[in-house]
Amino acid sequence: MPLHFFPAPAPAERSVLAALGSPTAVREARTSALRAATGPTSPELPLPVHVMDRATLESDSPTRLAGWRFLIRSGERAVAAADTRLTPDGWAFSHFFEGPYVTATEAALRQADGLAAPHQPRLLSVPGLYMLTLWLHGDPAADAGRGGPLATDLLVPIAPAPPGIAAHRPYPASELLPVLTRRLTPGQLPGPLLPA
């Protein structure tokens, strides 16, 4: 398997397991699929979530680690996701959610698993564009919480993608990042449409 998942911080995973074991947290979750799940549920496929926004573009680092996301599996498929965030007291459960990004992330991971070269999967969120990408980092042994995309990394926009950017098409970071940067920079013309 060419995807090498970096282990999530143990407190982040424990916080998700505790939330899954809490009837109150699951009952109050805004995910009917999680409430309706029969049988055991488990957090799998931990993905560090990095954010790229105007603030990071103006800093020394193009991204910042915002949390860890776990796909929540019930049976053969992911029915929801759980996000964690870093607090002054350490990693803590944030929320459960469902929707198109859950199934699209699972599909993007299956697609990436078929690539020949090994990669470390991460998520790159671009809130200003309402965009989420599967970031395939070329160094599987790198610390998943640090660093920005390398020019040779692959970025796979997850559906639904912004206009002009094809979902589920792997783009070299050197091709997609300049488009995203232009779209996030005030006063700049929007980035060009990318080939599908």
Results as ranks from 00 to 15, higher is better:
residue 11 P to M: 04
residue 102 V to W: 11
residue 61 S to Q: 09
residue 111 Q to C: 02
residue 30 R to I: 05
residue 63 T to V: 15
residue 67 G to H: 00
residue 19 A to H: 07
residue 92 A to C: 02
residue 72 I to C: 03
residue 95 H to M: 04
residue 65 L to Y: 05
residue 67 G to R: 00
residue 49 V to G: 00
residue 40 P to F: 05
residue 103 T to W: 06
residue 78 A to E: 12
residue 42 S to K: 01
residue 29 A to G: 11
residue 135 W to T: 14
residue 120 Q to E: 12
residue 37 A to H: 11
residue 48 P to Y: 01
residue 65 L to T: 04
residue 32 S to N: 09
residue 70 F to W: 05
residue 84 T to N: 02
residue 87 T to G: 08
residue 119 H to Q: 10
residue 101 Y to K: 03
residue 37 A to Y: 05
residue 112 A to Q: 08
residue 123 L to W: 13
residue 74 S to Q: 07
residue 122 R to T: 10
residue 125 S to K: 14
residue 59 S to A: 11
residue 42 S to C: 02
residue 36 A to F: 08
residue 42 S to Y: 06
residue 81 A to T: 00
residue 114 G to V: 08
residue 12 A to Q: 00
residue 21 G to K: 02
residue 90 G to C: 11
residue 11 P to I: 06
residue 55 A to Y: 04
residue 136 L to M: 15
residue 42 S to E: 12
residue 117 A to H: 13
residue 111 Q to T: 14
residue 86 L to V: 11
residue 129 L to H: 00
residue 54 R to V: 13
residue 12 A to F: 01
residue 111 Q to A: 13
residue 88 P to H: 00
residue 59 S to Y: 00
residue 48 P to N: 03
residue 22 S to F: 08
residue 115 L to W: 15
residue 121 P to A: 09
residue 87 T to Q: 01
residue 14 R to M: 04
residue 86 L to Q: 15
residue 110 R to T: 13
residue 57 L to A: 10
residue 121 P to G: 08
residue 48 P to C: 02
residue 46 P to V: 04
residue 12 A to S: 10
residue 26 V to K: 01
residue 13 E to W: 02
residue 67 G to S: 01
residue 22 S to Y: 08
residue 66 A to H: 12
residue 51 V to P: 04
residue 31 T to L: 02
residue 23 P to N: 10
residue 20 L to Y: 10
residue 118 P to H: 11
residue 13 E to Y: 06
residue 10 A to S: 11
residue 130 Y to D: 12
residue 95 H to E: 14
residue 24 T to F: 13
residue 61 S to P: 09
residue 14 R to K: 12
residue 37 A to E: 07
residue 33 A to Q: 07
residue 136 L to N: 13
residue 93 F to D: 01
residue 26 V to W: 06
residue 94 S to G: 01
residue 27 R to C: 07
residue 80 A to S: 14
residue 23 P to W: 08
residue 129 L to T: 00
residue 100 P to G: 12
residue 49 V to L: 13
residue 58 E to V: 03
residue 132 L to R: 07
residue 76 E to M: 05
residue 131 M to W: 15
residue 133 T to G: 14
residue 38 T to H: 02
residue 135 W to V: 13
residue 82 A to I: 03
residue 51 V to Y: 02
residue 127 P to N: 14
residue 43 P to Y: 01
residue 58 E to W: 08
residue 52 M to W: 00
residue 70 F to K: 03
residue 85 R to I: 15
residue 96 F to R: 07
residue 100 P to S: 08
residue 68 W to I: 15
residue 54 R to F: 01
residue 57 L to D: 12
residue 104 A to F: 06
residue 45 L to W: 05
residue 103 T to Q: 09
residue 109 L to K: 07
residue 53 D to K: 00
